[in-house]
Design a protein around this nucleic acid. Sequence first.
DNA 1: GTACTGACGACTGTCAACAATCGACACTTT
DNA 2: AAAGTGTCGATTGTTGACAGTCGTCAGTAC
Lengths: 243, 243
Amino acid sequence: MTPRQSPSAVKPRWVAEGDRYRLLQPAERSLRQQVASSLRDAILTGTLKPGERLVEEDISQGMRTSRGPLREALRQLEQEGLVMSFPYRGSFVSRISTLEVRQVLIPMRATLEGFGFDQALDNLTEDDVTEMRGIIERMEEAVRSGDLIGLVEDDVAFHGLVMSRSGQPHTTQIWGSIAPRMRAYFYTHLREAMPTQEQLVGVAKAHRDLFDALVARDHKRVATLLLEHVQDLPGFPVTDPAP
Amino acid sequence: MTPRQSPSAVKPRWVAEGDRYRLLQPAERSLRQQVASSLRDAILTGTLKPGERLVEEDISQGMRTSRGPLREALRQLEQEGLVMSFPYRGSFVSRISTLEVRQVLIPMRATLEGFGFDQALDNLTEDDVTEMRGIIERMEEAVRSGDLIGLVEDDVAFHGLVMSRSGQPHTTQIWGSIAPRMRAYFYTHLREAMPTQEQLVGVAKAHRDLFDALVARDHKRVATLLLEHVQDLPGFPVTDPAP
DNA sequence: GTACTGACGACTGTCAACAATCGACACTTT
DNA sequence: AAAGTGTCGATTGTTGACAGTCGTCAGTAC
């Protein structure tokens, strides 16, 4: 029996994965979201640098699409704070200051997650717990191998998963526009960030504790751990370089 | 001497205003932003109700444009939390719960404005002060005439003006995605909101005090007044109707 | 040399046609 | 009946062409 053909050659709903086929998630389904995702990665990893101009035709051609989906992706990244646009003048990769991270993003994240985690607590399924456990284990592995980028990604994935289970659409959506900015900040400062191994272990430990409290459905302990942990950015600059 | 002709009949950069011509601001320049603005108004005023489906062709025709700019406007409103979209399924006007307003939006607004006002304080020009005074006076007039909608709009305009002077792009931009949700909440609850005249006077008074503190460049007093004032929504429900 | 003016090229904004997907409903199969 | 399959119309996703705007820079006047 030959494997079933993909229903569409151009934009498959299914993608080969070993000897099985996996259904593409809605998030990956539209070109616009793929484009947004690629662009986001390019900005976060520094392929596109702060201040750099984004020429629509160049980028859309590079991604083998037309400008329509790209422009919609740009509107989305604009709201995620990764891009700034000016009418008839173009779009540019934006910067983010340590001051705003400390004074605004971290407190907002604390508020959002404080509420979101509490709401999510009673919605978590067995599958969610399994997925969370997987992320925690990957995170611990990343710490062992000193993989800073992996650590950041697992961190975001863990918090994002819980937030998505909060059942609070605005909270989840706003969190989704804060997280990329924090990621961008982390990535651009990875070079100067020099966390000790001890600090990294501490981060993983904090998540393991948080995970345990979540599984135990211990609202109060979750809130306590969260507040302790969201505040600090081990190894990252906490004051602006330029005064 | 005849007045200078507009460079383009279709999309004028200049617009007649009495016997003079006014340059259109960038914000009004692109069709996409006009469309976003119209849609936002329609949602806020309740012409489009929560849960209602937004059919692209109908709306774009109604606004005499094509679907391109409309779709970009939808992406923007999506990030402002006024609309939710699902691939190949359409866009819908979203709801917002009192719970999220209390637990998330109000604390976030407090954080954002606490920082933004402080930063803006030393940037305010004479023109800004004049504009602020105008808003405060309109607000006081709205209170006298019992114009609730006018009060909400002047409130948003005042805070928005200060935030835009903070010089903090992310703070300003995030605030711009929070404010429409609060406006939407206010508008949908205007009917049930029954603030007393005394409360309304209190709101205007609070802004007048804030304005005075801003003009005096009194950082500490601004922070204090702000925290007091952002927390309460006079006359609006503070608990969810359905428990 | 400084300030104004008017091409020019590069790019963004907009449009209308085409392709892909969804939900519903009738139809078959068991 | 219940479950599965095929078709259809409505609606969204995508495209390529065209129109409008901006920054630049050469040319001109003073």
